[in-house]
């Protein structure tokens, strides 16, 4: 299995003493859907921001195909942030154009197909859509890129269960065996059936990196139940 993303002794401190990510070492292969799981404040979003070059590591490095974050890695990573950066006053079709201008690997056709499947009219403004539909539009934009790594920060938070199912189906349906998907969430039970592997983070450190079926085989319980046990307060 060839490696795609590597964390080498990766650390990020805030205020020079608080470690948000603490000497993290891990290698993520191609062709996997991986859950990045941890309680609030465990470093998930800090880690994701370093992968995308939005934060600079204090120590160590994050490498995509051997490269530190740079325009080339950004072209190969499709990133769904935990909050929207789109202009709500723009029409969906204008946003598609915006994405097409920014990303060479964006398929407008694919995005239009996915929107049509949802019955979302591309000529409406983003601000007129429901919260659930806005989240779906953003996911569609990200999944319509032909990337090597998809990084989804809390893609299912704040949407109803049917929208969650749609989002998970979109992730499965657009899955490409050459790419990997990293999904951060704390809604584990909703998502664990689509995951190959899980990474547990606590205080910025790697607690566990294993497969979903390993946890079920070894502990006889779901990842969700095991998570509650490991992180019990």
């Amino acid at each position: 299995m060839s490696e795609l993303l590597e964390f080498v002794n990766l650390s990020k401190t805030y205020d020079k003493r608080y470690y948000a990510v603490n000497h993290l070492n891990a290698t993520i292969p191609k062709g996997k859907i991986i859950g990045l799981l941890g309680p609030n404040g465990s470093g998930k979003t800090t880690l994701i921001k370093m992968i995308n070059g939005l934060l600079v590591p204090t120590e160590g490095a994050v490498l995509l195909g051997g490269l530190e974050p740079c325009p080339e890695t950004k072209a190969r990573i499709a990133y769904l942030p935990d909050r929207s950066y789109l202009d709500p006053h723009q029409k969906v079709e204008q946003i598609l154009e915006f994405f097409g201008d920014f990303y060479e690997n964006f398929s407008r056709e694919k995005a239009l197909n996915l929107l049509a499947g949802l019955g979302i009219d591309p000529s409406v403004k983003l601000s007129t859509l429901s919260k659930g539909n806005r989240e779906k539009v953003q996911l569609i934009l990200v999944m319509s890129r032909q990337a090597d790594l998809y990084v989804l920060d809390e893609p299912i938070a704040g949407v109803d269960p049917a929208a969650r199912d749609y989002i998970l189906k979109t992730i499965i349906g657009n899955y490409n065996p050459e790419a990997s998907v990293l999904i951060s969430t704390h809604l584990i039970s909703d998502i664990e059936n689509v995951l190959d592997e899980v990474i547990f983070l606590r205080h910025g450190q790697l607690v566990l990196y294993t497969s979903v079926d390993n946890i079920r085989e070894q502990h006889g319980k779901s990842v969700d139940a095991y998570f509650r046990e490991v992180f019990a307060c």
Binding site: I33, D165, L168, I172, Y175, N193, V194, D196, V212, D213
Partner: peptide, 14 residues
């Protein structure tokens, strides 16, 4: 595999 994975809502590798 992909069709059935989507139907079952599970990971295609699984």
């Amino acid at each position: 595999v992909r069709e059935l994975a989507e139907e079952a809502a599970v990971n295609p590798n699984t």
